[in-house]
Design a protein around this nucleic acid. Sequence first.
DNA 1: ACAGGATATGTAAACGCTAACCTACAAATA
DNA 2: TATTTGTAGGTTAGCGTTTACATATCCTGT
Lengths: 351, 351
Amino acid sequence: MTPARERASATHDGDGRLTIREIAAFAGVSTATVSRVINRSGYVSQATRTTVERVVREHGYSANRNARALSAGRTGLVGVTVPLIHPAYFSVIVAGVAEALYEQDMRIVLCSTLHEHDREVSLLERLMHGTTDCALLVLPEESSAELRTLMEHGFRFVVVDPRMRIDERVPTVSAAHSTGANQATAHLLELGHRRIAAITGPAGWMATEERLRGHHAALATAGVLPDPALVVESNFEVEGGRIAAAALLDLAEPPTAIFAFNDQLAIGAMQAALERGLRVPEALSIVGFDDTAEAEIVTPRLTTVHQPLAEIGRMGVSLLTRQLENQRLDAVHVELETKLVVRASTAPPPS
Amino acid sequence: MTPARERASATHDGDGRLTIREIAAFAGVSTATVSRVINRSGYVSQATRTTVERVVREHGYSANRNARALSAGRTGLVGVTVPLIHPAYFSVIVAGVAEALYEQDMRIVLCSTLHEHDREVSLLERLMHGTTDCALLVLPEESSAELRTLMEHGFRFVVVDPRMRIDERVPTVSAAHSTGANQATAHLLELGHRRIAAITGPAGWMATEERLRGHHAALATAGVLPDPALVVESNFEVEGGRIAAAALLDLAEPPTAIFAFNDQLAIGAMQAALERGLRVPEALSIVGFDDTAEAEIVTPRLTTVHQPLAEIGRMGVSLLTRQLENQRLDAVHVELETKLVVRASTAPPPS
DNA sequence: ACAGGATATGTAAACGCTAACCTACAAATA
DNA sequence: TATTTGTAGGTTAGCGTTTACATATCCTGT
């Protein structure tokens, strides 16, 4: 695929890569001019530019990223940390990020933290130490104080889906948790449900608190008194959802609907219902959150709140590049719209 | 334009990063010695090593990767290309790769090719041009000839799950497609099925051909004549599976079991059965392949052939590092074992 | 006719590190 | 004793770019 690259001239190359000097020689200009052409900086006459561009194209030259990084202090690499890679939630965000970065001709250096705080911190240290220009932290483990320290060191980064409430000055992207939750609960209320349980994520997480807020707001609007027994904390995993739902269904006065704070939990809840011979949605309505691919393939198909995950990733990149351009970007906090997707797991309560 | 680079005095800084020279000064040795210590190369006395290591630790120093890359010609970065990031199949492999690379203190530069051949080629060109030391290609788009060209240019890479049969000299990792398929079909035969359909992937793909081979071998062993009408080609996607299964079920003499060549197809087949009011597994048995997370959450839970995807990723890294160490590694072709996981989507045929 | 800005290009000094090459010495060997 | 060998550690030349600075030319307005 590489264009024919036989070297007629004296310059031999061990590895087969042309340098800017060779390109300059071929084009009959200095290396500075070549650099100016490929970086579109400074003054270059149209004629020279054309010549150089032709030579570059003919030889399939592209600058050595490391040399550029060393010299100019930018690498074209963006560090991305995620707790885990394979859950659909994260992989879709990463896909969005990768897509957006590709368009900017940047590359993504991916690291999974496995939810380990120390690992994330050391990772970030290293990433920022020359490997990458900036970073995108998905659901970061760091405390607000740690992030502030990083900022003060001049590290540029954006947080996607902050776990906790963090320093105002850190740009963030997240979904409209509260509104989304409100939509979900409102949907159940509209169907006529009054005993609506919630299976939440870990306490203290923004996603949990905000969704809870939306949930309660919807109940309040409908004049339904919230029952503390109907709110169970869990861990955003299938098994957690199963256990939480089991507990809820064994209540003396069980709920007729469950709002699970993500799809995994919702799927767990469906399993719990199945185990008890309760049909969904006839005997129990279930709503999830996220709208990952799983929501489409379970039976019945899951009603859930759609988060534009890929778009969230792309938006993160957008904030990042804006931050790199305008040295001082006022901290931006973007909240992306969610949308209720009604499928087959919700129905009016049994009469 | 330039990063803050006002290094007035030898001490603290704007940009925060210490150089090897400063560390050398602190430790009272030359930069070469520091380099020898951190790279564990050449002779260094125990005393000196200890001192340097202490200084390094105290200042949290780590070498600028770009400078190292430029000077030593290695980057510690590995390019990884996948067709898409978010399908569970790929993201699990990537997770395995990331994990293994992390242990080697290398980083992963992730690129999705979106199944576009040109994109993959140009990507690879660039990656190999200094950004990364080597690459791991998952289900690559390239032809055998293109890969050979890359090899001849001295690029080091490993192919994970080759799409087509490729040059012998390229190291590859894949699952034991044929054996796995054999297990799946044998399982159905044991249950008593005789009309067993197969929904395959695209013709020409190794995964398709090999699985087909295993499938036919199992049929032959059981003395069942293969019926060409029962083999339908598809595309490894849910919708493709639905359509293919629909066609099969509308046959005059429909199958009593379907072996879908991946879980997505199997899920599509389950949907087709559901649409026709056929109960799985009572009226129709379905077996998948891959054992991605989806297999666990559909109803009924899917019997499928487990591929050790994360392990496949890790093995890819292992081959890669071995290749980097021994300059000339004989082409290795690793085939990882698959395992039939029997769940709830298979049963004896209706009598 | 000329100062001075706009344009165009070259020269060479970093960037931070590695590794080839050197020096120096002590222990082992002839 | 003379010579080799193994250790220890310093010096310094790149690695391939970018970019500050220097230089040269061409306009334009006075």
